[in-house]
Every structure is written in C-alpha cells, then in structure tokens.
Computed example of a mutant assay.
Amino acid sequence: MATVPAAAVFLALGLPGAALAEGGKAYQIDLAQLNDSGSRGTVMLNLKGNQLTVRIESEGMVPGQPSAQHLHGSTKGHDFHCPDASDDTNRDGILNNTEATVDYGDINISLTTSGDTKATSGLAVERMPVADKKGKVVYERTITVGQDVVEHIKDLHVVQHGIDRNKNGKYDFDGAGKSELDPKLPQEATAPTNCGEVKGAAVGSVPVGGIETGGGSPQSTVLPMAVMAGAAAVVYAATAGGIAVARKRTAVVPVRTETPGGAA
C-alpha cells in the first residue's frame, strides 16, 4: 500500500495547515458505540514536541447536551482497552463509568473546551462541548502535555460520555437513575457513549483499521473530518425534572495552547 505524507492527510481533513503535522506524529482513533448509543466518530491526534492537538468529530450524541470527554489509559505501561457490554457487571443493562473504567482506565486528560485539562476536571461539564441539534460534536484544542504522555500516546484512548436511555432528547433521572459518580447528576450524563483506541502510525503513513476492544469489538465506521461550526459554553445544573442547559454558540471551538494544569 502506498504511503501518503501525514501533512497531506491533515490538509485533506481540513485541519489547520500542513505545518501542524510536519515534524510530529499523527494518530487516528475510530470511536465505536457503547451502551447501544448509536454514536460513532473519528479523532485525530497530532503530537509535535509536547504540544498535543486533539480534533474530534462525532455523531449520535444527545442533541443540545454536553458531552464529557477524556483521554483515558495509562502512561506507565499498563494495558487498557475499550470495554463492551459484558462489562455490565450488575446486569442492569447500562455500562456505567465505574464498570467501564476497569477496562479503559482512569482519566489522564480531560478534553475540556477551556480552562485546565486535569483529570479532576472530568465532570466539568460546563467546559465540555455541546452536541448540535443533529447530535454532532466538533472539538479541537491544543494542550501542552508531559513527557509521559509523549512517550505513551499509543497507550491512551478517547471516551465520550452521555446517553439518552429513554429517548426523550435530554439527560434526566427517569432514563437510568442517578450517576454512581455524582448523585446530583443523571446516570445518562456520565455513562460512556463511545470509545476508541489509538490506531496510529508515524508521519509518512496513513492510519487505518478499526478499534480493538476487550472481549468483542463493536463495529466502527470512520467519520470524515470536516471543518464545521459547533462549540458551546454550557451551564449545567441538576434539577428535579432533569438537567437545564444554557449554551452560547460560537463559530468554532477555539484552539488553545496551555499546560494541563494551567488556567485558560
């Protein structure tokens, strides 16, 4: 199979310039559904020195709702992978985050739209992207990462969260009860909706292939990257009847460069 320079791949995907890929490493992640969410997507990672640019385009998310998203896994050589339905250990029909964490590991980086990207910001849904009215999420951000992430980028993977179990177009407590992570949040807001492992190659080749999962692999279709409008600032509050979300749309999620623990 002929190889294509990664710079050309990034240009074809509408990413901000071929220079982004030059002198760095490019990786692709295919996101496959969890919890029968119907969600799928593509993630492109570009690592240049200690600058990591993450671009996500996914669909099948809950329209108008925030999607918590993270890089999970280990930078210490531990082997983690995406879960499947068999990891629903309490057999309640929902793979919750605690059950899934056994497979995909703890949060390494929170993929927020602003502010810090620490693991402790994992539930900072007011700084997470919001799906548009068609259930699409488009996200892009550049952050400064530690040397451990640089050396173990292939051991990390992306997980997005948020499902609509009762198909009423929002996160609420009627769909799946309270989140085991925070009883003030619905389970629908924190349950994983998709997962994908790094399927990458060094600059000079095109990443191909589907994700590998533990005990059975959900089918994934690569979603083409496109330059789309979408981003939001979100105020997320639990109420007796559900979750109220107010958002302010902008033309595109801004690319920001900062340290994982830094302020926006």
Rank of each mutant, 00 (worst) to 15 (best):
A2C: 05
V9A: 06
L11C: 06
L11Y: 07
A12S: 07
L15E: 10
L15Y: 01
A18L: 02
A19P: 03
E22F: 04
E22H: 06
G23C: 11
G24K: 07
K25A: 14
A26M: 04
D30R: 03
D30M: 11
L34E: 05
L34M: 07
N35F: 01
D36C: 06
S39C: 11
R40T: 12
M44K: 02
M44N: 11
G49H: 11
Q51C: 00
L52K: 02
S58K: 02
S58F: 10
Q65N: 08
P66R: 11
L71V: 10
S74G: 13
K76M: 09
D84K: 02
I94F: 10
I94K: 11
N96Y: 05
N97T: 13
T98G: 06
Y104W: 12
G105S: 09
D106E: 07
I107Y: 10
I107G: 01
S110L: 01
L111T: 11
L111F: 06
G115W: 03
D116A: 14
K118C: 13
L123T: 09
A124T: 02
M128I: 04
K134N: 14
E140Q: 15
E140G: 15
R141W: 04
I143A: 03
T144F: 02
T144Y: 00
V145A: 00
G146Y: 01
Q147Y: 01
Q147F: 00
D148C: 02
E151I: 01
I153E: 08
K154I: 13
V158T: 08
I163P: 04
R165G: 03
F173P: 02
D174F: 14
G175L: 07
E180M: 06
P183K: 15
P183F: 07
K184P: 03
P186T: 10
P186I: 12
A189K: 13
A189C: 05
V198W: 13
G200N: 11
S205M: 08
G209Y: 15
G210H: 09
G216P: 14
P218R: 12
S220W: 05
L223S: 10
M225P: 06
A226F: 01
A231N: 09
A232L: 04
Y236Q: 08
Y236N: 10
A237S: 12
A238G: 14
G241P: 00
G242E: 00
V245C: 04
R249T: 03
T250A: 10
V253M: 09
R256S: 12
R256T: 12
E258L: 09
